[in-house]
C-alpha cells in the first residue's frame, strides 16, 4: 500500500468508525429512552400502592421491575421518619428489597455496588450487615467506603481497628470521610476512638483524624491528653495547630498551658489556632498576649486575637478600645474594624 493509499484508508476508517459509533449511540439512546419511559410508568403505578395501606406484595403482581421497586422504596424510606419509615421498611422487606440490594452489592457494576451499599444502610438487619462486612473487602475503594459508612450508620458499627486495616485509614486513605466514620463509632463506643488518640503506635494523621472526630463530642476527659500532646508537639509541626483547634472546640479551661504555649509559637497556624482557642475557653490571662498579637504580621492571627478579645467580654473589649486609641497602626486597624463589624465601636 502506498503512502497516499494509507492516508485515504486512514481517513475512511476514521470517518467510518465515527459514523458507526454515532449510529450505535443514537439507537442505544432510543432504547434507553424507551426503557426510562416504561420505568416511569411502573413508578406511577407503584407509588400509590406503597403509600396506601394496601398489601405490599400487590406491587409485585403489577409486574414492576425489581430495580424500580428497590429505587422507589428507598426514596420513600429516605423521605420520612418514625412510624411511616418503619412501615415502608417493612413493605420493602416484604418486597425483597434487601435481598435485591445484596445481590447488586455482590454482582453489580461499581456504581451499582456503591448505590446498593448506600441502600442497605437503611436495613439494620444481620444479613444486610454481613453483606456490608463482605463489601469491606471489595476491590473498589468507593464500594469499601460506602459499605463502611453504611455499617457505621447501623446499630452495630464495625470496630475502628478493622476499618483502619481494611480501608487503609491514616495511610492509603486520606479522605475526611474517616472523620465521619469515627464519629459514627464514637456515638456508641467512644473509648475505641479515644484509644486511637492515645495509641503511640498509630500514625499522627490517624490520631489527628480520631481527635477531630472526638473534638465535637464534648468529651472533656480528652482535654488533658490533647493538652499533653500539644505541649509535646514540635513548634513547627502540622499537628500542633490541629491539637489547638481541637482544644478550642472542646472549650475546657484545662487546655490553658497548651493554649498559652501556642500563643507564643513561631508557627503562624499555631498562633492563629491558639488565639482562637483562647477566646473559646475564656482564658482571661491571655488578654495581654492577645492584645500584643493584634500587631502580629499575619492577618489570621490578628483577626483571631481580636475575635477572642471580644469573647473575653468586658476586659477584652476594653483592651480593643484602648488599642484603637493608642495602638500601632496595624493593631489599631484590626481592633477598630473588628469592633465596628460586631457593632461595638464606641
Amino acid at each position: 500500500m502506498s503512502f497516499l493509499q494509507l492516508l485515504w484508508t486512514a481517513s475512511l476508517l476514521l470517518a467510518g468508525i465515527a459514523v458507526a459509533v454515532m449510529l450505535v449511540l443514537i439507537v442505544a439512546r432510543l432504547l434507553i429512552v424507551r426503557r426510562a419511559r416504561q420505568r416511569r410508568a411502573e413508578r406511577r403505578r407503584l407509588v400509590p400502592i406503597l403509600i396506601s395501606s394496601a398489601r405490599a406484595d400487590e406491587a409485585a403482581l403489577l409486574g414492576v421491575h425489581r430495580d424500580v421497586i428497590a429505587e422507589v422504596t428507598l426514596e420513600l424510606i429516605d423521605m420520612v421518619r418514625g412510624e411511616e419509615r418503619a412501615a415502608f421498611l417493612s413493605k420493602a422487606d416484604a418486597l425483597g428489597v434487601p435481598k435485591q440490594l445484596m445481590r447488586r452489592l455482590k454482582w453489580g457494576s461499581r456504581r451499582t455496588r456503591v448505590l446498593a451499599a448506600q441502600g442497605l444502610s437503611q436495613f439494620d438487619q444481620p444479613e444486610a450487615r454481613r453483606a456490608l462486612y463482605r463489601a469491606l473487602e471489595d476491590r473498589s475503594r468507593e464500594v469499601r467506603l460506602a459499605a463502611a459508612l453504611a455499617l457505621g450508620a447501623s446499630s452495630q458499627p464495625p470496630e475502628a481497628g478493622e476499618l483502619i486495616k481494611k480501608l487503609g485509614l491514616g495511610t492509603a486513605e486520606a479522605s475526611l470521610t474517616a472523620v465521619s466514620l469515627f464519629r459514627q463509632i464514637a456515638e456508641t463506643r467512644p473509648d475505641e476512638i479515644r484509644a486511637l488518640v492515645l495509641d503511640d503506635a498509630c500514625s499522627t494523621s490517624l490520631r489527628l483524624v480520631a481527635l477531630e472526630a472526638l473534638a465535637t463530642s464534648g468529651d472533656f476527659s480528652l482535654v488533658t491528653v490533647i493538652t499533653e500532646l500539644a505541649l509535646a508537639a514540635e513548634d513547627s509541626s502540622e499537628a500542633l495547630p490541629r491539637y489547638l483547634h481541637a482544644l478550642g472546640k472542646l472549650g475546657h479551661p484545662a487546655a490553658r498551658p497548651a493554649v498559652l504555649r501556642g500563643l507564643g509559637s513561631h508557627s503562624m497556624p499555631a498562633r492563629a489556632a491558639a488565639a482562637g482557642a483562647a477566646g473559646r475557653i475564656l482564658l482571661k490571662e491571655s488578654a495581654d498576649r492577645l492584645t500584643e498579637l493584634l500587631d502580629d504580621p499575619e492577618w489570621w492571627v490578628r483577626f483571631r486575637s481580636a475575635e477572642s478579645l471580644i469573647l473575653l467580654g468586658e476586659p477584652g473589649i476594653a483592651r480593643l478600645q484602648e488599642v484603637t486609641r493608642s495602638g500601632a497602626e496595624r493593631a489599631r486597624a484590626a481592633a477598630s474594624t473588628v469592633l465596628a463589624e460586631r457593632g461595638l465601636a464606641g
Partner: peptide, 21 residues
C-alpha cells in the same frame, strides 16, 4: 497528497468530536 492529508486532518477532527460525544 494535499487532498489526502486535508481529508485525514478533517476526519480526525470529526473523530475526536465524536469521541467526546
Amino acid at each position: 497528497y494535499l487532498l489526502a492529508f486535508v481529508a485525514l486532518v478533517f476526519t480526525f477532527g470529526v473523530f475526536v468530536s465524536v469521541a467526546s460525544l
